[in-house]
Amino acid sequence: MNQDRARPWLLSAPALVLFLVMLVTPLVMTAVLSFNSFDFYGGIKPTFGLENYADVLGDSYFYEIFGRTFLIALVTTLICALVGTPQAYFLLRMRPLWRSVMILVVLGPLLISVVVRTLGWAILLGNNGVINDALKNLALIDRPIKMMYTSGGIVLALVHVMIPFMILAVWAALQRQDPATEKAAESLGARPATVFRRIVLPQAMPGILSGSLIVFSLSASAFATPAILGGRRVKVVSTTVYDEFLNTLNWPLGAAIAIILLVSVLAIMVAWNRLVEKRFAGVFE
């Protein structure tokens, strides 16, 4: 009896230890750090106060960075949903052979390091990059279009990084649907576009919503892509935290920013989830 109860705990012990050591400990230490104080001569002092939070929340500079970060994440999510949903549907309708090939194409990018992919984007988007050179050679433009170090460039690269997650989420939802529902709609007189809008899309919605959740939270905390494509000029929250830690050496302030990011992303996720559950209660399992 006693042994029976202990077994699940024993079996999950390695995972629990890993979780505690690798995730909870640094998180707690970051939280503690965010309450400490810092000055340029004395360094970090083990005091306890809210002045770091007051600094961040009282400075319009940080508001701008947070605003930009969430805007980039939001636009990335929207584009991923708009592009990824039809793509997942086409994948579903493909012949098995082509489907395997296309799934590899979609998931392939996940196998390559984000840094490598983003550097690729930097080569494409730079003032003397492939795209601008091509346009100049075609005499379509005479001055390069600025794409590096813009929010637009970051969004573009983030969409590329994040879209597999959206496609996978929508794909999973579409696979749960009964393919006969599309035939039923067709037999009742619906055109293909109507079938997609009225029958497929609503059934894919749970997948789109959960995909959005993943893409949004990953984009809001993405580091490598905005670091390479945005540099110092287009700062987002994660690159700001990095700078506070490694350049200014103001660890407590960096920790406070990180905690604010964490809490706000969590809050957005929970609110979103609530909304979705309320909207679709009763309709889907």
């Binding site: 006969a180 529902t181 039923a184 067709e186 037999s187 009742l188 007189g189 619906a190 055109r191 309709v283």
Partner: peptide, 27 residues
């Protein structure tokens, strides 16, 4: 198929899960 005007009942019923009974019938 959409112009044949046939009534079909599928083996799995193929009801639209996101629509009420009334909306299903009215489609």
């Amino acid at each position: 198929a959409r112009q044949r005007g046939l009534g079909i009942v599928f083996q799995t019923y193929a009801l639209f899960p996101h629509m009420t009974v009334e909306e299903n019938v009215g489609f």
